[in-house]
Design a protein around this nucleic acid. Structure first.
Lengths: 222, 222
DNA sequence: AACGGTGTTTGTGTATACAATTTATAAAAT
DNA sequence: ATTTTATAAATTGTATACACAAACACCGTT
């Protein structure tokens, strides 16, 4: 008893809903996901819930322990750093390919997004910046013109989103972020694949490196 | 009516079985995977079959079209090239990290595997070389000491395995492969992260580049 | 012969029922 | 009081049942 619209595939719809709930922190890391609870909450049977959870498990957002149910994947600082390490490389590849393959149109659009990022009301609001920043990165991925890469990178991006959001609250991070974006755009504009790649890598890896510290201040709820 | 051993989770077991059947070509690309057929074949109900298919769909091995069932993901030359492009970058990252993090033990083991690859009886048998080659690459991934990277790379490796296997039948490919492995090992031994990274990238990308040609000679069965 | 409508069939998607395990609870023993 | 063991409760994993949409075949019309 939740929604009127009836999607052709409930499990797909539920997957997105649960994904969203995890991203926005409604379901926090370590939290147990009871199939029956979820089924009641969404007014469906266990079957599509299970199928949604299986998909989320494949993408790493939840963990399914055999016979012991599903939990939102707990935050593991080590693994998180590892994920940033991989993310950095994927974004670097996006940037490298983008430098060679971006269309005029895409480049103009990217610059437009960047200009919007720089607006003061956005700079001063981490939540607003979060969305614009996301737009920028998605535009970068698309400019790689490698659909498989776009898919993989977008996936990992999603999985790291909540952490990146936190990261933006660190003093001065938004301004550094903007500067880095600008450098990346310049490199791409000049078709300098190597620079673009290195800059993009650094743009991500720096977040991973700072994360260990940031995480130390957090208490993962069990 | 197939196996005596009873795994704790049928869907996991079935996932592996179907995965294997796809890798070995028993289920060829484009082939329809009827849930009821599979259920009968394995002597189980549709439920665990569905769950297995969903997992395989998340990993990209099969495609599930809503209301139209599952098929083994058809070969798309463009996408395949894209996958190699990403794979090259992941392996490059493995090599880079390995140069910095590999243990003495791991390095010795890697050299041992490489020596085994060079044995004549293996060089002359693409199928044998396939397995030894795989060992080499898995050792490289592990040496990165980044569990998330290992997982991602191993996944993609699996997905490309059947194509790599084909690739090994190209005249002279095995010998080039060996030479490239040797160069990678040397770079890692010297702790030369940049060279190792570039060599590993090239080792993979060359396969992707040659694949368009190779694929042209194949007829994807519908 | 080609085209399009209509009824049938097949197969997916979801719900429900049952089986098998783990977790919680409580009693008994040290 | 604490640990151990037995029993009950709860939850996952699998099987079956049902609903509905898509594919198919058949037939009449043009």
């Amino acid at each position: 008893m939740r929604k009127k619209i009836k999607p052709s595939k409930l499990s797909e719809y539920l997957k997105e809903k649960i994904e969203e709930a995890i991203a926005t922190g409604v379901f926090s890391p370590g939290m147990k996901l009871d199939e029956i609870d979820l089924a009641n909450k969404f007014g469906v049977s266990r079957t599509p819930i299970r199928e949604a959870l299986i998909q989320l498990a494949s993408s790493g957002l939840v963990e399914i322990r055999p016979r012991r149910g599903a939990v939102v994947t707990p935050i593991d600082p080590k693994k998180l750093y590892e994920m940033f390490e991989v993310m950095a490389e994927l974004e670097a590849l996006c940037a490298k390919l983008a430098s060679r393959r971006i269309t005029d149109e895409e480049l103009i659009n990217m610059k437009k997004i960047h200009e919007e990022c720089k607006k003061t009301e956005i700079i001063e609001n981490p939540d607003l910046y979060y969305y614009k920043n996301e737009e920028f990165h998605l535009a970068l991925y698309k400019a790689s013109h490698n659909d498989f890469l776009i898919e993989q990178t977008t996936n990992l991006h999603k999985r790291l989103s909540s952490f990146r959001r936190l990261q933006l609250r660190v003093r001065g991070r938004i301004l550094s972020s903007l500067r880095e974006h600008e450098e990346i755009i310049n490199a791409i504009t000049n078709g300098d694949a190597d620079s673009a790649s290195q800059l993009a890598r650094h743009h991500i890896i720096i977040q991973g490196e700072r994360f260990s510290d940031l995480l130390a201040t957090l208490q993962p709820d069990r």
